[in-house]
Computed example of a mutant assay.
Amino acid sequence: MMSTWIWRRLPGNVWIKSLIVAIAFAALVAVLFEWVFPWLEPYLPLQDQTVEGG
């Protein structure tokens, strides 16, 4: 429902709308990897190992 509302309000034809959506998605991924994930990483137990070596 929300994606339909956004799609109808984007300017241009299907190709232009698709390009806008692709650029917006790439920008979202870039923001997540550049700022959100590094800020969140200290709070996640990603370095905790459950398998003992040796």
Rank of each mutant, 00 (worst) to 15 (best):
M1I: 15
M1G: 15
M1N: 14
S3H: 08
T4M: 10
W5H: 12
W5E: 07
W5K: 09
W5N: 11
I6V: 15
I6G: 01
I6M: 14
W7G: 02
W7F: 05
W7H: 09
W7D: 14
R8F: 01
R8P: 02
R8L: 06
P11H: 09
P11C: 07
G12W: 02
G12N: 06
G12V: 07
G12Y: 03
N13G: 15
N13C: 10
V14A: 09
V14S: 13
W15A: 15
W15C: 08
W15T: 14
I16D: 01
I16W: 05
K17N: 03
S18L: 14
S18N: 05
S18T: 15
L19C: 10
L19Y: 11
I20E: 04
I20D: 04
I20W: 02
V21W: 07
V21G: 03
V21L: 08
A22Q: 09
A22S: 05
A22I: 06
I23K: 12
I23V: 15
I23E: 06
A24C: 08
A24S: 07
A24L: 06
A24N: 05
F25H: 11
F25G: 14
F25D: 06
F25M: 09
F25Y: 07
A26D: 04
A26C: 14
A26W: 01
A26N: 03
A27M: 10
A27H: 03
L28Q: 06
L28P: 04
L28M: 14
L28K: 08
V29A: 12
V29L: 11
V29P: 00
V29N: 10
V29F: 10
V29K: 03
V29W: 02
A30M: 09
A30G: 09
V31H: 03
V31T: 14
L32N: 13
L32F: 15
L32Y: 13
F33A: 09
F33G: 01
F33W: 12
F33T: 09
F33Q: 10
E34M: 13
E34N: 10
W35G: 06
V36W: 12
V36N: 06
V36A: 11
V36T: 14
V36G: 00
V36L: 14
F37Y: 15
F37I: 11
P38C: 09
P38I: 14
P38A: 07
P38Q: 02
P38D: 11
W39E: 11
W39D: 13
W39P: 05
W39M: 12
W39K: 12
L40R: 08
L40Y: 04
L40I: 00
E41H: 11
E41A: 09
P42R: 00
Y43I: 02
Y43M: 10
Y43D: 01
Y43N: 04
L44Q: 10
L44S: 07
P45A: 06
P45L: 01
L46D: 01
L46G: 02
L46F: 11
Q47T: 00
Q47S: 08
Q47H: 04
Q47I: 02
D48M: 01
D48H: 03
D48F: 00
D48E: 13
D48S: 01
Q49N: 11
Q49C: 06
T50F: 12
T50L: 08
T50H: 06
T50R: 12
V51E: 08
V51R: 08
V51P: 00
E52I: 02
E52Q: 10
E52H: 11
E52C: 05
G53W: 00
G53N: 00
G53H: 08
G54H: 09
G54E: 00
G54A: 05
